[in-house]
Design a binder for these strands. Sequence first.
DNA 1: ATTATCTTTGCATAAAAATGCGAAGCCCGT
DNA 2: ACGGGCTTCGCATTTTTATGCAAAGATAAT
Lengths: 156, 156
Amino acid sequence: MPIIMLNDHHRETRRSAIVRLLRQAPVRKQAELARLLQREGHAVTQSSISRDLRELGALKASDRYVLPGDADTAGHTRDDFGALAQFVRDVRTAGPSLTVVKCTVGAAQSVAAAIDKSEWPEVVGTVSGDDTLFLATADGNAQVRLVERLNRIFRV
Amino acid sequence: MPIIMLNDHHRETRRSAIVRLLRQAPVRKQAELARLLQREGHAVTQSSISRDLRELGALKASDRYVLPGDADTAGHTRDDFGALAQFVRDVRTAGPSLTVVKCTVGAAQSVAAAIDKSEWPEVVGTVSGDDTLFLATADGNAQVRLVERLNRIFRV
DNA sequence: ATTATCTTTGCATAAAAATGCGAAGCCCGT
DNA sequence: ACGGGCTTCGCATTTTTATGCAAAGATAAT
């Protein structure tokens, strides 16, 4: 079945498609987005996409484009906890394999969940209460690295 | 007075400086950030800055770099929808508790997500299709306020 | 129907960012 | 002290993005 190529002056339609595509799956570079649009029947090149993204206010994270409003959630890396970082109050070790993280009341489970998601190699397991969470490491070396990471991220 | 250039292995110090500089004033490109850092005594080139920004999770907007957590708040208030505003086509009421928002095809879910995030007090719930979204209010008074807000933001 | 103006777009290229590679320094184990 | 491994970094280059320019289409006025 022939593909009906859209002609000039379909800027609005294409931009709607760009918004949808960026929300559906990560797009790393403009050439990739061009291919996705062409596959949907848009006749477009990288230079128009560059203009579209600028006028949509899109941001480029290192691995993907994100739309305003999405930037906060998409821009998070393994060590980026966004707003959660502000809830961590103290980090202390208890023996060579246990690290205790004190948080503001109610935040420990969110911080613990976020740490789980980050899959830090130093962490063997996580248990959290209401304002405290325990992080287990395999040995003292891993604990040292963990504490460095925690101090760097949460600045306690 | 001689400038004391920092040597190798000052990654952490430099990254702290980058975070501070990006929050202080807009930085449009990496070469500019390199110059600002060099002016503060950091011996650094564009390639290291590229790696720093990636590992900090910085995002590139068209006119500046932003840090995660700042991207969403930097330009957006509760009533600022950036590029999404252009996709809203019509706002109508249906009875005293339902407001229907028509969008260009494919954009309704993005607009709905953005409205959810804004936590407007008038809105009890949101449902969206492909080009239409429904906003529920508790009563007619809330609906009146909601419609005012929608008209102000989306100018339909 | 014609003309002028504006908008949109791609081509080609300039500008900016990402990255492979090798060098240098640091850390750790012996 | 030495060697191995790791981290950090800049150089040079590749890759990606932004943009000047011209072409083509749409719109409006005549």
